[in-house]
Design a binder for these strands. Structure first.
Lengths: 338, 338
DNA sequence: CTGAAAGCGCTTACAG
DNA sequence: CTGAAAGCGCTTACAG
């Protein structure tokens, strides 16, 4: 395999000229450049990665730590992982994948051996030991998700409060005055992640601001529980006409079944918006309006912030990504009351 | 950050002694080793990865190319990716993740820049351009899955034929004389992957060998189609009493619903075995006996074969991983005939 | 059992 | 606009 000396010899220049020509870090004469380009092509030269790493200041590798917790939804997880890789490649960075069982040891290892220039931390939970580790390592890092203690860290996450607020706005704008949020199982609110809480709080706050009735119900996954939660809501006085659902894919499907089972049509009798799912709600029957959790949005920004840290200090921050709304026809004006 | 010279100075030895002490490649005197160990601890020394790569013969990094095709089942895909990383770590290897959109370019890049020592190719399809590329690159590589042209390549895969044969054996051993295989949708057999075919062939061959009646039906995903396929089988003369199911998670669930809907019990009226799923059939109602596709089995072996190629040539091969059988109580003797 | 030294393949001041 | 040379941090013959 050809090295930089071979290229220099064939092109009749010094290796530093080859290096500069390839990196573009200093101007190269027209004819010189052409000869180098040709030598590179002729020899099928590609710079040796280890040589670059050692001589340069960058390894051009990021570590990605992506735990697969039991409550992680695999397709979403995968989408995040791939989005990080895709975003990193735009900056000519490769991504080293670290798994859960080596979460902190792996981070320690790749950063103290200088294998990586920085770290992307995926799926950060409230009490995430990786957050504290990253802080103490002092390595460039961007977290996707917000730990309880985000001091000194660069975090990116969807603006869950705004997302819930957006759902409320769309329903209220359509004329609804009684809303309900069907949330995750109770255990989720007691445990690690904080985004279900942020979503719930955003929902209730915005509903209050818009001066509409609003309720919040935690829904267990079992079909029977979903059905009874729905029944309880719809059979009450002042039954909500607009629902926001924040839960797993299965819960959405069961819910839609249950709604149909009660002879209700969407959006004729009931308007529904899916809150920050990572799955596709446009294939549901009927398709649901949605405020999706878009992996590429957070991941692109996280990679960007990691790259920026390499060139200079980036102020610690929690950066919230704006939610988006997609209309699939599941929201309409409520039926006129009796 | 401390380097090897710092350690040598603190320990009062030469850097070569430090290097050998750390690598264990030559015997070191008792006291010398202790002083080095202490210096390492005191300085919190960790060898620089780029330095090792450049001076040594290994980068200790494998590339993993893991396309996410539309028909890929994400949770399984993720399990394979994580299994590769976990297996690689056992050999002190890290894993660089390459995505679909950079599949061949990425492989070319990381191998000609010598960033990686070898390549693990995931989810190989019949006509996989990555297979041809890997062959032409001449880089150590292990493929998981078998391309149409496997010449010169090291491939690992589940023995799908044996898996289907095992399912047949278990049913026949239990006393069944009429079996049916419910397979994937027709499109799957017309397209890329070859394992559904191998599973089907193994099923039919073993059934013939065991001299029992056997049928094969391709089943579309829609619930109605699953129900009608089942009805057609069970309403026939000589209806099968033992089913093997090779399909997606949803199809299994629909099938179990349909069986229950017909008032049939498992395994009382019908014995069922799930063929090579990547999901958990023990949580179904009822739990299903299963010949699982175990990511760790294939991935561990693939990584092992990749590592072996670094030390010496490994003969090209298609190595089939033996299937395993897990009993969850969904197979019993058939009801005595009328 | 240990050391001095060459060399891996680059990048980047320094110099002209 | 270009080159000679130092140096990044290791590993590994070579030598004793």
């Amino acid at each position: 395999m050809a090295n930089i000396h071979d290229v220099a010899r064939v092109a009749g220049v010094s290796i530093s000229t080859v290096s500069y020509a390839l990196s573009g870090k200093r101007p190269i004469g027209e004819k010189t450049r052409l000869r180098i380009d040709e030598a590179v092509r002729e020899l099928d030269y590609m710079p040796n990665a280890a040589g670059r790493m050692l001589a340069g200041t960058r390894t051009r590798i990021f570590a990605l730590t992506a735990p697969l917790r039991s409550d992680t939804y695999a397709p979403a997880h995968m989408a995040f992982v791939l989005s990080v890789v895709t975003a990193a490649r735009k900056y000519d960075y490769d991504v080293l994948l670290l798994t859960e069982d080596e979460a902190t040891d792996g981070l320690r290892r790749v950063s103290s051996s200088r294998l990586v220039d920085g770290i992307i931390v995926l799926d950060v939970s409230m009490n995430d030991e990786r957050a504290d580790l990253v802080r103490s390592l002092g390595v460039p890092a961007a977290l996707i998700g917000v730990p309880r203690n985000a001091e000194g860290l660069v975090c990116v996450d969807l603006d869950f409060e705004a997302a819930a607020g957006l759902a409320v706005d769309r329903l209220v704008d359509a004329g609804h005055t009684s809303l309900a949020l069907l949330g995750h199982p109770a255990a989720v609110y007691e445990r690690g992640s904080n985004f279900p809480m942020r979503f719930r709080d955003g929902f209730l706050r915005r509903a209050a601001e818009r001066e509409v009735a609003a309720s919040f119900t935690m829904v267990e996954k079992e079909a029977a529980q979903v059905r009874s939660a729905l029944a309880e809501l719809l059979d009450a006085d002042q039954a909500p006409t607009g629902l926001v659902v924040h839960g797993e894919e299965g819960v959405h499907k069961t819910l839609l079944d249950a709604v149909a089972g009660r002879g209700l049509s969407i959006p004729g009798d009931l308007s529904i918006i899916a809150g920050v799912p990572t799955f596709d709600t446009s294939a549901f029957t009927p398709p649901l309006n949605v405020i999706p959790l878009i992996p590429a949005d957070s991941c692109t920004r996280a990679v960007e912030l990691a790259v920026q840290q390499l060139d200079g200090a980036v102020a610690p921050r929690v950066e919230l990504v704006a939610p988006r709304y997609r209309d699939h026809g599941s929201v309409a004006a409520p039926r006129p009351g009796p």
